[in-house]
Design a protein around this nucleic acid. Structure first.
Length: 269
DNA sequence: TCGATCCTGTAG
DNA sequence: CTACAGGATCGA
């Protein structure tokens, strides 16, 4: 699921249910999600901690606990993190769970198990995330900043947008959608974009993420289904061969940095 | 800058 | 069966 808007929605939901709770037990069901950290150490390190804050940085979820313990969660492609009334009943794709009193708690589910959970101190987290670019929905992301960054990058626009050290939190879908709104071809080299085009790109990035955040939050709070930004108006992503909603030309797909890129040959030159 | 890799599920 | 998946990292 996760790009910035979905991860942000997960965090907001989680805050309502988990803030102030004490983790009485933690269980890692798939050791690999910890990377090199040991299951015993992780579980012992988390047990008894109280959840004091839940932050997001790029696509990382940071569960800040008492005693300077921070649980860092990355959902990667198919991960999800959510509160449940009873952690004893969990679906088979569950990779970890955190139990509060009365059996309430949090599940980490991830069918592909590509997601990661790590336990760190706040200082370690700071160092680990130091290389990330600015948050695109924060004040630090300005048109001037984008201009400066673009002038020193020969990356194609799509790869630039997905580069977490440039801008934090965009992924394959919203990078493509932002470029469509800005009418920029995904292969365009950043240094070759004019100042007004970059101003437009800045606006498009913010608009796409805000729209997506809206629908992600809506999808998340609505009873029943959980997760997808279903009412987000996708213009190009996964629409190869379908007519552009704006100019009617056929949407194209090609591979860029090992990922599918979709664009409209009519709207994006 | 490409390709392989980590995993599992689903669509064709 | 193969291709591909909203991510990130590693080595050639």
């Amino acid at each position: 699921m996760p790009e910035l808007p979905e991860v942000e929605a997960v965090c907001r939901k989680l805050r309502q249910e988990a803030l102030g709770q004490t983790i009485v037990r933690a269980r890692i069901l798939r050791p690999r999600i910890l990377g090199t950290q040991s299951v015993d150490e992780f579980e012992r390190g988390v047990e008894g901690k109280r959840i004091e804050a839940i932050d997001r940085r790029a696509k990382h979820i940071l569960i800040r606990c008492s005693n300077d313990a921070v649980i860092q969660v990355h959902l990667r492609m198919t991960g999800n993190l959510f509160a449940v009334p009873d952690v004893r009943f969990y679906p088979q794709e569950t990779r970890a769970h955190f139990e509060f009193p009365e059996h309430r708690g949090i599940l980490f589910t991830d069918p592909r198990a590509l997601g990661r959970i790590q336990l760190h101190t706040s200082g370690e987290i700071k160092a680990l995330l130091a290389g990330l670019g600015p948050e695109p929905l924060s004040d630090s992301f300005t048109p001037e900043w984008l201009l400066a960054a673009a002038r020193q990058s020969r990356q194609p626009a799509k790869l630039f947008l997905m580069d977490q050290t440039r801008i934090a939190g965009l992924g394959n879908i919203y990078a493509a959608e932002a470029l469509f709104r800005a009418r920029i071809h995904p292969r365009r080299i950043m240094t070759r974009l004019t100042k007004p085009r970059l101003a437009g790109l800045h606006t498009s990035i913010v608009a796409v993420l805000q729209d997506a955040l809206q629908s992600a939050c809506k999808a998340y709070s609505s009873p029943g289904r959980f997760g997808e930004a279903e009412d987000f108006p996708v213009m190009v992503y996964d629409r190869e061969g379908l007519p552009c909603k704006s100019c009617n030309r056929s949407i194209r797909r090609f591979v860029q940095g090992g990922r599918s890129t979709y664009y409209c040959p009519g709207c994006q030159k």
